[in-house]
């Protein structure tokens, strides 16, 4: 998909630039865009490492397990058919907690192992079970409490209050999550 989007954007830009008489500016933009990408990566490098470092402290100390215990009762409601003591449910909860804490590196392997365990419970069928759909939808809705990359980016561009958007992001996440969960529950009977 990115294949066509990326190639298409450049080809269309070049064709349109002829009609708008902006060929020179477009060619210049190609060069400056490539340079800006490197600047952006370098300016984000330090803060990204800082955050992955802090996350790793929580990961090594077992913060995921602690918060998983606290969230288990609430998450049981979303996965009513899963045995709360099963390994599958454990992986599901830990995946969700890792997402909350912004531990992307830890969340993906936990999620993949959760889907694998759910597949076994579903007799190895090739179709997704209701639990898998719920888990993946929870993962596609951003659960991250502190959007670290975004805050760093705002800081880099001189925002007066880089973290000022956090409350709005939380409200937005909760609304999106509510719609996602409702959609899963409503649609699972139709598919």
């Amino acid at each position: 998909m990115m294949n066509y989007i990326w190639g298409g954007m450049i080809i269309v830009s070049l064709i349109v630039s002829v009609f708008t008489g902006r060929v020179e500016q477009t060619a210049a933009a190609a060069v400056s865009g490539a340079g800006e990408a490197v600047n952006l990566s370098i300016s984000l490098l330090g803060i990204m490492c800082l955050w992955t470092g802090i996350s790793k402290i929580g990961e090594d100390a077992g913060l995921i397990r602690l918060i998983s215990k606290l969230l288990k009762p609430a998450l049981k409601r979303l996965f009513p058919r899963l045995d709360p003591d099963s390994g599958a449910f454990g992986s599901v909860v830990m995946n969700i907690v890792a997402n909350l804490l912004g531990m992307g590196n830890a969340a993906t392997p936990l999620g993949i192992s959760a889907v694998g365990k759910l597949k076994k419970l579903n007799n190895d069928r090739n179709a997704a079970s209701n639990e898998m759909c719920m888990l993946v939808v929870l993962n596609t809705a951003s659960l991250q409490l502190i959007p670290t990359t975004l805050i760093s980016l705002r800081q880099t561009w001189g925002s007066a209050s880089p973290g000022g958007v956090i409350p709005a992001i939380w409200i937005c996440e909760i609304c999106a999550l509510a719609v996602g969960i409702t959609a899963v529950k409503l649609l699972e009977k139709r598919f």
Binding site: I112, V115, K119, A127, C133, T140, V179, L187, E188
Partner: peptide
């Protein structure tokens, strides 16, 4: 997530996820 487990039929996942994105 589905690719790693070899799930071919994702059922309603995309609809629900895109509804959340649109929200």
């Amino acid at each position: 997530y589905f690719g790693s487990a070899g799930i071919k039929n994702v059922r309603h996942t995309l609809f629900a996820a895109l509804a959340a994105d649109l929200t």
